[in-house]
Design a protein around this nucleic acid. Sequence first.
DNA 1: CTGAAAGCGCTTACAG
DNA 2: CTGAAAGCGCTTACAG
Lengths: 347, 347
Amino acid sequence: MKKTASTTKSMQRAPTVTDIAAGAGVSRATVSLVLRESPLVHPDTRARVQAELAKQRYVYNRGAANLRRRTSSAVALVINDLSNPFFAEFAAGVDEALGDKGYVTLLGNTSESPLRQDAVLASLMEHTPAGLILSPAEGSDGKRVAQVLGTNLAVLVFNREIKGGEWDYLALDNQRGAELATEHLIAHGHNKIAFFGGHASSSSCRQRRAGFEAAMKRAKLPLRKEWMIETAPNRLDAAANAATLFAQKAQPTAAVCYNDAVALGLMLGLAARGVHPGRDFALTGFDDIPEAALASPPLTTVAVQPRERGRQAAELLLQRLGMQASKPRQIVAAVQLKVRASSPSPT
Amino acid sequence: MKKTASTTKSMQRAPTVTDIAAGAGVSRATVSLVLRESPLVHPDTRARVQAELAKQRYVYNRGAANLRRRTSSAVALVINDLSNPFFAEFAAGVDEALGDKGYVTLLGNTSESPLRQDAVLASLMEHTPAGLILSPAEGSDGKRVAQVLGTNLAVLVFNREIKGGEWDYLALDNQRGAELATEHLIAHGHNKIAFFGGHASSSSCRQRRAGFEAAMKRAKLPLRKEWMIETAPNRLDAAANAATLFAQKAQPTAAVCYNDAVALGLMLGLAARGVHPGRDFALTGFDDIPEAALASPPLTTVAVQPRERGRQAAELLLQRLGMQASKPRQIVAAVQLKVRASSPSPT
DNA sequence: CTGAAAGCGCTTACAG
DNA sequence: CTGAAAGCGCTTACAG
């Protein structure tokens, strides 16, 4: 209990089971049984109670019920960057799946700040969630997080591993996605392929590079240092670095891009140099953001389906709620290549 | 209480005020006073209790406290389309501001379905929120919504008016935004200006058209039916309809677009016809999505700052919590023109 | 300054 | 099938 929560009194007492019981001429226990659709109640009694419920516009107080039953119908969802459409979609998927199962979502956005994450988690814990889905802020400290969460909470970590915690983990298959993209370009006859964009220090970039390199090695194609190009993972920096691809005498004919933003930026950069993407140069993205299909030419990319991942995360967490304590699970979500016009055969 | 909420028992009892009281050798009341930082407790006692709190890793149960105090520290946030970055930003702003005030956000996403909205609202009501921020699904029925919310809840409606309810309402200044854009084009010497995109049946499109028409009339410029062009409010349909602008003998030299998506689509459509946007033709957008600044040329547009709007919505709602019942308020959020390269003088 | 008792709105054995 | 009683974890008068 760090900061004092401001609160507010309701202006007018809402009806309770006691009011309904009085109105229907039964005991509170009977009302409770009707509310939870117990078959023990006589149909006539049930009808009478239900009429009274409707008449008084009764609203169930799940908090009170949870307190008495020592249960929870809330799940905390803590997101590192809700303004990123990828995570917003993920959140929508989580909320959808939780709602279907009768849970409510307690939202927390951390804006990539581990400090804020600590505060958000502590605050949410006071609302006794049944579990937590956490897409960690960059630089999260597993020990600290474990400390505020305690040991009794079901937790699912998404997207970024946290070292120092023992939690279920849902990851994207970054390596496989990059392999699929690389194999696709190879199958179309490319053999001079670059890996373009991203910071090699990030785990997702490392995994995607690993997939690229694995596919290239399997095909016995050359891996050249000059063709492994780092940029910030956004459109702007990608556009600015397009020229790097052609700085050497040996020039690639295709590039596997770190993600769609980078790929779209590269397309702009190529166009500015008079190179037509999808005609003079082939490239692939990663993510399948809505824009990818609308670019010209439409971008071949790896779809990760964030909303589906959200649903999956919710399901994994709810499974965990029913389980005895056991080893943390590692689930790697399948990804899928979407072939579009940006990746033709070499000219 | 429609569907049965699945629930889960915690595996191991968490310490309560009783445990702390026993450990520290005081009464539960004293522990409670320490928790709420009452000055009535002797410093020595307080220290003893706080040590015990830390030792037992006590976590405050806000739900129990809220039950006893008949208060709530939760606010429901119901969003029509979380996968739209505009609303995701808005949600992030709401969550941020609520968190700062000690409230937790109960999230619900309706995917633009009034049916789902009813279900989501009913479910959230069972968690006794102190208030609700609602960005309504298209086609929401005010009567129905009012029915599930009851009369005792503080409500703030965002972005789309709901007829049939008496709630505070935060709107964007669509009309003023379109006026600003239109005046900007006029100031740059354009006098043949089209309004491009959106469905005239939507309230936001109507308001933006009204602003456009007002500015044109003030400048005594011609309003032509053929220059009021409807499209779906997305990039694809906008691109497909670019030719419509030049179908008549009288051709506009500029367009105020319904929103950024439409403007970016129009830019593609123009380019495909060999018309260079920002050189041969001037246009403006609405929203200032991140892409607007990155387009080539960068798009002049009207910034609505969704995250700020989220913070504002949270503040307005919290104000309402402290107020006696009174007339609903209508707040119109200011918007702001961002001039970029897409809107030069006519050639 | 501290403690004993009652109660928030529910549910759960236990009788009958 | 229904009711009286106890209790979930907290807070709030009320004594002392």
